[in-house]
Structure formats: structure tokens, C-alpha cells
């Protein structure tokens, strides 16, 4: 195993289920035999604010947060938040982003506009960007709430971990009665 550390940032809006997705990532890397650390903020920011969760894995990980400008993979749950987090990435990083917009307060009030060219701007900065219609695919899998798992499936193809390990982590982290739908959602994301 090399000394390389992989730095993943999960970003979105409080309440979108980012913490759960980062738990599945951490569990997967542990099962794959890596050292893993993660860090995020609970409390105040969860009330609809911007959320950033850091997950790192490798042979030995020190800092629980991703050093500024060293993100290797951005896992975005919302377009504006994904775009906001791009400066945390190294050049050439990979981006997987949910095609989903949640207007922030100033936009709701009509005092600001939600930029409409974010997808193009993300693509212009990061060639390896994948836009995922998480909601739609999740509905296809049987439950709109499985959008995170669709995204996870898409993210999984960008990480050097066997599919069996992902499946094992899903089985451990997802409640039994929701597992079938989540497996479908994961497969739809993985097929992208």
C-alpha cells in the first residue's frame, strides 16, 4: 500500500443526509483495510446552512480535515454548495455532483439570483465532473430518499475499492427494510 492519502469532501445543505453518506464512506474504507478519519460540524449549521464533511483514507492518516487545496474528490449534494467548495480541491480533482438546487435565503427573498451556469462553470474548472440526477434515479429505484445512495454509487466508481466492500458497508449501515431499494439506487449510480 502506498503512503498516498485520498481526500474526499462531501458538501451540501444541512438536512440533506450528508453525515450518513460520509459514515458509509468511512465504514467502506475501514472494511477495505485502510486507516480512515473524518470530520464534520454538527449543531447550528445543520439548520439549513452549508455543510462540509471531510473523509480521508490511506495507510496512515493524521489530520481529520482535508488540508486546504488538497481535495481529490468532491461529492456534492447541491449545486451551489458544490461550486462554493471548489477552491478546496487540487487541480485535476474529480467532482460528482447532484443536479439539485436549493435556493439560499437571499435568493428566496428575491435579493440575489441563483447562478444558472454552475454546471458549466464546474465543468470548466474540473474536466472530470459527473452530474447526477440523484432524485430522478432514486425515484426509479423506488424511493426519492435514496438519492444519496445513487450519488454514492457514482462516487464509488471513482475510488479504488472493490464493489463487494461497498456492498458490505451498505448492508452494515442501511436499515434492513431499506436495503433492497438502496442496493438498486447504488447500482443505478454505479452504472453512470
Amino acid at each position: 500500500m502506498s503512503d498516498m492519502i485520498t481526500n474526499i469532501l462531501l458538501v451540501g445543505v444541512g438536512g440533506q443526509g450528508i453525515l450518513l453518506a460520509s459514515e458509509v464512506l468511512a465504514e467502506t474504507f475501514m472494511l477495505a483495510g485502510f486507516d480512515v478519519k473524518k470530520s464534520e460540524i454538527h449543531g447550528m449549521s445543520q439548520r439549513g446552512g452549508s455543510v462540509v464533511s471531510h473523509v480521508r483514507f490511506g495507510r496512515k492518516v493524521f489530520s481529520p480535515t482535508v488540508p486546504e487545496g488538497e481535495g481529490d474528490l468532491l461529492f456534492g449534494f447541491e449545486l451551489l454548495e458544490a461550486y462554493r467548495a471548489l477552491p478546496l480541491l487540487r487541480s485535476g480533482a474529480k467532482v460528482v455532483v447532484n443536479d439539485y438546487r436549493i435556493p439560499p435565503p437571499s435568493v428566496l427573498l428575491g435579493q440575489a439570483t441563483y447562478p444558472d451556469d454552475l454546471v458549466e462553470r464546474i465543468r470548466a474548472g474540473f474536466a472530470d465532473s459527473l452530474l447526477v440526477d440523484g432524485l430522478h434515479l432514486a425515484q426509479q429505484a423506488g424511493d426519492a430518499r435514496a438519492a444519496n445512495t445513487v450519488l454514492l454509487g457514482a462516487v464509488s466508481t471513482r475510488l479504488p475499492i472493490d464493489e463487494t466492500v461497498w456492498q458490505e458497508a451498505l448492508a452494515r449501515m442501511v436499515p434492513k427494510k431499506a436495503l433492497e431499494i438502496n442496493r438498486k439506487a447504488f447500482a443505478l449510480g454505479r452504472a453512470l
Partner: peptide
């Protein structure tokens, strides 16, 4: 010293926490 970010995203509408 850390390099300046590979990408700058400029001014964006902030997203502070809000009542549900």
C-alpha cells in the same frame, strides 16, 4: 506557504442557517 487555490469561486449568495 500554501499555494493559492487552483480555483476561485468568487462572490456567491451565502447560506447561513435558518429556522425550518
Amino acid at each position: 506557504a500554501p499555494e493559492s487555490p487552483a480555483f476561485t469561486s468568487g462572490q456567491l449568495p451565502p447560506r447561513p442557517p435558518n429556522m425550518c
